[in-house]
């Protein structure tokens, strides 16, 4: 992650200059994306070793409660496409959303496309919004995902929700890539 002196990271400064200005309030994460964490994620997410998620339960809950204690916040996990879900059998973001201790609402659906991790940065930044709404989004939403890399995914989801009545969207992610 690029550090800056302004209290806002370089990534967010970039986004604030784009058409995605003030779409996402903030993002908080627990860990950096170290080689160990990459291996761990590979086994948890891609190999599908479900129980490995449990390790994060207490700390992730603490993180969420630290920043979004107010009961008005609703956890909205970033979904997988139906096809991807059928392949993996579980959505790691859904797992994390259950850990938060907050109310969970699955209001987002996702079109099937390439894996984000297989895309280049530029390709991600200019890609189309893959999300659609399944239900009315909550007024105060905290998006939950495993990894924040470029922030594109979260901002796509945030924008869609803001256009449909959400007042406040922040993000709580396990890892900041």
């Amino acid at each position: 992650m690029k550090q800056t002196n302004s209290g806002t990271c370089a990534d967010c400064q970039y986004w604030e200059k784009s058409s995605y200005r003030s779409v996402l309030e903030r993002n908080v994460s627990l860990y950096g994306y170290e080689p160990f964490m990459q291996d761990y994620m590979a086994r948890w997410k891609y190999r599908g070793d479900y129980v490995l998620g449990k390790v994060f339960e207490a700390d992730f809950k603490k993180l969420f409660q630290q920043y979004f204690r107010d009961a008005k916040h609703v956890a909205v996990p970033i979904p997988l496409s139906t096809e991807r879900l059928a392949e993996r059998g579980f959505n790691q973001a859904g797992e994390l959303a259950d850990f938060t201790g907050a109310k969970r609402k699955d209001v987002l659906g996702r079109k099937h496309g390439e894996k984000q991790s297989k895309r280049s940065r530029l390709h991600r930044l200019t890609s189309d919004n893959p999300f659609y709404l399944l239900a009315e989004p909550p007024k105060f939403a905290v998006l939950i995902d495993d990894i924040y890399t470029t922030g594109t995914t979260l901002r796509h989801a945030a924008r869609l929700m803001k256009e449909n009545g959400t007042v406040y969207v922040a993000a709580c992610t396990l890892i900041r890539g």
């Binding site: 599908g48 479900y50 879900l85 059998g89 579980f90």
Partner: peptide, 18 residues
């Protein structure tokens, strides 16, 4: 145990040969 979203059930999976 895995809460599986393919079949909607909670069932076993093998970690040994994963």
């Amino acid at each position: 145990l895995l809460t599986c979203q393919i079949c909607g059930d909670k069932h076993l999976y093998c970690r040994n040969c994963i």
